[in-house]
Write a protein that binds this DNA or RNA. Sequence first.
DNA 1: TATGAATGAGCATTCATTCAT
DNA 2: AATGAATGAATGCTCATTCAT
Lengths: 187, 187, 187, 187
Amino acid sequence: MITADTSVREQIVSTADRLFYKQGYNLTGINQIIEEAGVAKASLYYHFPSKEDLCVAYLKRRYERWLAMLTKFLEGITDPKERIIKCFECRSEYLLDNDFSGCSYIRIIAEMPQRSAKINKQAILNKEKQRQFFIDEVKKLRRIPGNSVNDFANAIFLLFDGATVQCQVYRELSPIDNALKALKILF
Amino acid sequence: MITADTSVREQIVSTADRLFYKQGYNLTGINQIIEEAGVAKASLYYHFPSKEDLCVAYLKRRYERWLAMLTKFLEGITDPKERIIKCFECRSEYLLDNDFSGCSYIRIIAEMPQRSAKINKQAILNKEKQRQFFIDEVKKLRRIPGNSVNDFANAIFLLFDGATVQCQVYRELSPIDNALKALKILF
Amino acid sequence: MITADTSVREQIVSTADRLFYKQGYNLTGINQIIEEAGVAKASLYYHFPSKEDLCVAYLKRRYERWLAMLTKFLEGITDPKERIIKCFECRSEYLLDNDFSGCSYIRIIAEMPQRSAKINKQAILNKEKQRQFFIDEVKKLRRIPGNSVNDFANAIFLLFDGATVQCQVYRELSPIDNALKALKILF
Amino acid sequence: MITADTSVREQIVSTADRLFYKQGYNLTGINQIIEEAGVAKASLYYHFPSKEDLCVAYLKRRYERWLAMLTKFLEGITDPKERIIKCFECRSEYLLDNDFSGCSYIRIIAEMPQRSAKINKQAILNKEKQRQFFIDEVKKLRRIPGNSVNDFANAIFLLFDGATVQCQVYRELSPIDNALKALKILF
DNA sequence: TATGAATGAGCATTCATTCAT
DNA sequence: AATGAATGAATGCTCATTCAT
């Protein structure tokens, strides 16, 4: 059993996670992070060689948070079609819980066009995990629209990302509804 | 005879447009803009009261650029289904021409979660124009999948935005292909 | 009869007068003046070669305003002692009317320690006129405390300036009352 | 052994003190301060959150300087009347030593009509300490002109401030002489 | 007279990072 | 493992002034 929750490192990551996601990476300064985390600046640089490394930790954490939430949503549900729909409903709740701040990986890339290798790797990794989820579920379907697992999974994945960014832009959940309607047309 | 193309104001806007889109809004400083534009700092602030106002001009300009490109792509094409597909192909070329920098409106919102009223208004306006394009084309269709103009247009719009952000994330055009395949399943 | 009140020059001076006195000379920019005056920047520089020249015009105007107010206050009063007291009461009203902004000449010197010759000359001139007023009144007195016209006039002048700056500092009129009490002790 | 006199913080405050008093607060830029202090800009902002906070430190320091000088002047003198006169003589020397730059509290208020709470508080505090000095001395007098401790102390305080600002305006010490003459009339 | 446009120098402040302890 | 202090470079923005028309 780990009690790292109150450690300096944990304080830094959780604060950075909150601020990066709420305010954006570039608009969140190191000073604000250490102030709100209640740690010294040099402590931050002891645990994270640079702001960029802190960003990687933030992206990892965001994925873990999403995965935990999704897992809970899918609990006891076996029907693949239902699981896909649940995933969209989960995103709806996630965005509602997080002030419509969108997808952290997409956003970090939107903020840093010349993204570093580290950040790029982490962001792509997280997105691929999401794509894989849809592929896994589509594989379980008895009838696959379009007859291609990948094509159908990718279609769902596009709707998923499209809905996520539109929710962020419009600050409302209707794009998720639109995506669910699109799914009905597709299925 | 107007030679406005080389005016100070035009120099500022075109330089800002290029840099904001390539590097991101927050990572592009006023100093770099005036340096590359070859104008004095006070000249920039004479024409644009703040960086934010310059951002609005940039968003307007991006839409105009996209519209001009799309109009050219659609020249002579009347079939609505074909026009929708052409729109995706146009986006493909747009992203290729612009180093996979994605959608300027989505990005500006990703960069500035606490976006100002001015910027929000311009971004939403531009996105709604795009949605309207799809609605107009869907209306012209003989058979509408799902039997609802708005639902089908919104589905296309989700694929369009989803493909745009995925192209940006992966720095490749395959998401556009995925969107076109999804369209085929839908139609 | 002159109707210059609406002329460009008059607009500039009256606006500068108001803003310099309310906000301070250094904290009032040319831009704010021309904006609130509703004139072009070059128009200001046509009438006043520099901000400094505008400052001189401001100091002149302040003195004229004070003199007009004082003249009205003294109307029909001949007793020198009473006239001196009235002068303090006039200052009280002046400060109340002008948001306790103190003496414009003292303030301009406080703001610009390395004051220019022009401004210095105008400020000293205005202050000397005030000193002369006290000298003139003291001369009319039957009995002069201290037996020296200049010494007694200077004492009053010190109380006058002391009260003015203290009213400004404390933003209340009690220093004027203190000065009047001091006068009673002196007389 | 403490060598705080040469610390970065001390360098900043002493330089700011000198420049604010000589040139005025608004005419002294942060750049000049750090340059003459020989420290980095960020070091200044590490010790003082804003220029305003540096101003408060400056005002405190000015009072300490004045108090030290006055204390030395009053050494061994017990007669209250003599102590009051010495206080004026001390001011004379203070102004001579400091290029007739007047009273820092009065000047800062003259420069910043919309003064901040912090600065206002410090300025008023310092002025009240001076007033209290006069009250304390007047209380010790055997015979109090006007029969009111406060009224007489306030009269002296007005002469003190009046003389200070007039010395600043005229750049000469005669107003102090005038004040001493006024004191003689009063006593 | 009057003006829109342009400018170089300067403003206060914040950035991510490093170093000595 | 943790910190207080220090920094060079950059941030967005404003200054008084000038010039061509």
